[in-house]
Design a binder for these strands. Structure first.
Length: 465
RNA sequence: GGUGGGUUGGCCGAGAGGCGAGGCAACGGACUGCAAAUCCGUCUACACGGGUUCAAAUCCCGUACCCACCUCCA
């Protein structure tokens, strides 16, 4: 079976056929760095990271581009409210985003272009569109440039909408537009905006519209035509529709496949609307490890809507700890071969839920072998488990999860020694059949946040709750 | 008004005409001094009403409810 992907444009799962044998060009819309990243933001990062890893595993030479929008209305607005320069605020939020991706083991893209670094490319693209009669400078002297949707008959093809059925943007200032649905390619500078937020152009100083950024950057790094374009479902319209219209109107074939990840909501609403900041990545990471959050995100299909809850995250984490427990018990092994069921699941539009089911099958089988005393058999299963986890970016042994710092190592060693002393006492108590004392010791450790497990022999294991 | 998606067992969450996905929880058993961990077993579900079919959670028609997008959101 070959890799099959759901293409939003054709609304069907179809074989992935790259433009060039053995290579895959992928462009994913990254974030607008305007606020702290929350769980919803990183879902896209994790989902497309899985795509990237699976393509690589499947033998493709992948060029993965994920942009950063570092100039837009929200950034300007928030920076002003904070009394900081917009670029400083954007840079701060970019670092937060990087930290969030790192905490979730989202591999860095091949390149991560920023919008502000590609204004000349955008201007060039806009000029080409004007020349071909698909864009025009506003006649009201605003310095805006708009894309002429009526000039492009295919407009609406990505989301199967007809221009006449669309609601016109109400807030958009209709002045200077030929059709209310025309969208801005270039925004003339407004007096109220900082001068640092504008660049020279043939139409006067201004800044690029949101959609043109991605067309220009995808074209620059992936070429006129490339394989996969991804992003969140909300971007289908207008962002992706507009991107495709611009690029194709300018003569570029653009993306062959469109992939969109579904939303993750809380209490039935978008995270961006939910109050408070309990769902920002740093705050979630105070309660769960990055690997647990990533497992939770990977265990559901990227096209399925997920209703986030800490209860569900806890259940998912409990399951993942069982996987880790097996690996701990099986001993160190190198990643082995992937079970065919896993490969088939992943090839079927990145069927991570089915892939995770195969993972659990291997864990259960491995535990069973371990219990039966078949250490070699168990290690083989452990090798498969590690291989599967590796593809999903969930291998606990991956140094990306943070090789513990030196200080942590020392603390760990110190704790280990203290616990060993208490466990020696506990074993002595058990041998004397003083179970009250034995239980008291275990309870004492439990109260300190340390869970211990022991059997009839000398062996025991401990872990922090 | 237009476009797209959804409703699955106590909970989470796959599947998309016929073989009990999987996880979490619970309960029973094995193992343990007792626990924990692990394994075995139990819990046979697909919003509602029709229809097609030898066979429907899956296809068709209808109904109800939910969600997303159609202005800046992953």
């Amino acid at each position: 079976m070959t890799l099959r992907l759901y293409d939003t444009a054709t609304r069907e799962v179809r074989d992935f056929v790259p433009l060039e044998e053995g290579r895959a060009g992928v462009y994913v819309c990254g974030l607008t760095v305007q606020s702290e990243p929350h769980v919803g933001h990183v879902r896209s990062g994790v989902n497309f990271d899985v795509l990237q890893r699976w393509l690589r595993h499947s033998g493709y030479d992948v060029t993965f581009i994920r942009n950063v929008t570092d100039i837009d209305d929200k950034i300007l607005g928030k920076a002003e409210a904070l009394g900081r320069p917009w670029y400083a605020h954007a840079a701060t939020m970019k670092r937060e985003l990087d930290a969030a991706y790192a905490a979730l083991n989202v591999a860095p893209p091949t390149y991560e272009p920023a919008a502000t670094g590609h204004v000349p490319e955008m201007v060039e693209l806009i000029e080409a569109l004007i020349e071909k009669g698909h864009a025009y400078a506003a006649e009201d002297g605003s310095g805006d440039v708009y894309f002429d949707v009526r000039s492009w008959p295919a407009y609406g093809e990505l989301t199967s909408q007809r221009i006449d059925d669309m609601e016109a943007a109400e807030d958009a200032d209709p002045r200077g537009k030929r059709d209310p649905r025309d969208f801005a390619l270039w925004k003339g500078r407004k007096e109220s905006e900082p001068s640092t937020a504008s660049w020279p152009s043939p139409w006067g100083r201004g800044r690029p519209g949101w959609h043109i950024e991605c067309s220009a950057m995808a074209g620059k790094y992936l070429g006129s035509a490339f394989d996969i374009h991804g992003g969140g479902v909300d971007l289908r319209f207008p962002h992706h529709e507009n991107e495709q219209a611009q690029s194709r109107a300018a003569g570029h074939p653009f993306a062959s496949y469109w992939m969109h990840n579904a939303w993750i909501t809380t209490a039935g609403e978008k995270m961006s609307k939910s109050l408070g900041n309990s769902l920002t990545i740093p705050s979630v990471l105070q309660r769960f490890r990055g690997i647990e959050l990533r497992f939770y995100l990977v265990a559901s299909h990227y096209r399925s809507h997920v209703e986030f809850s800490f209860e569900a995250l806890e259940e998912s984490a409990a399951g993942f700890r069982r996987v880790e427990g097996f690996l701990d018990r099986a001993g160190e092994v190198e990643p082995g071969a992937l079970p065919q069921g896993f490969v088939d699941a992943m090839d079927d539009d990145l069927g991570t839920p089915a892939a995770v089911a195969v993972l659990y099958d291997a864990v259960r089988e491995g535990n069973r072998l371990l219990q039966a005393g078949d250490a070699a058999g168990a290690r083989e299963r452990a090798g498969a488990v590690r291989a599967m986890l590796g593809v999903l970016g969930l291998d606990p042994a991956d140094p990306a999860w943070g090789a513990s710092s030196r200080a942590e190592d020392k603390a760990q060693a110190a704790l280990d020694m203290l616990i060993r002393a208490r466990m020696d006492e506990r074993r002595a108590a058990r041998e004397n059949r003083d179970f009250a004392l034995a239980d008291a010791i275990r309870d004492e450790l439990k109260n300190a946040g340390i869970s211990v497990q022991d059997g009839p022999d000398r062996d025991y294991q401990w872990s922090l709750d």
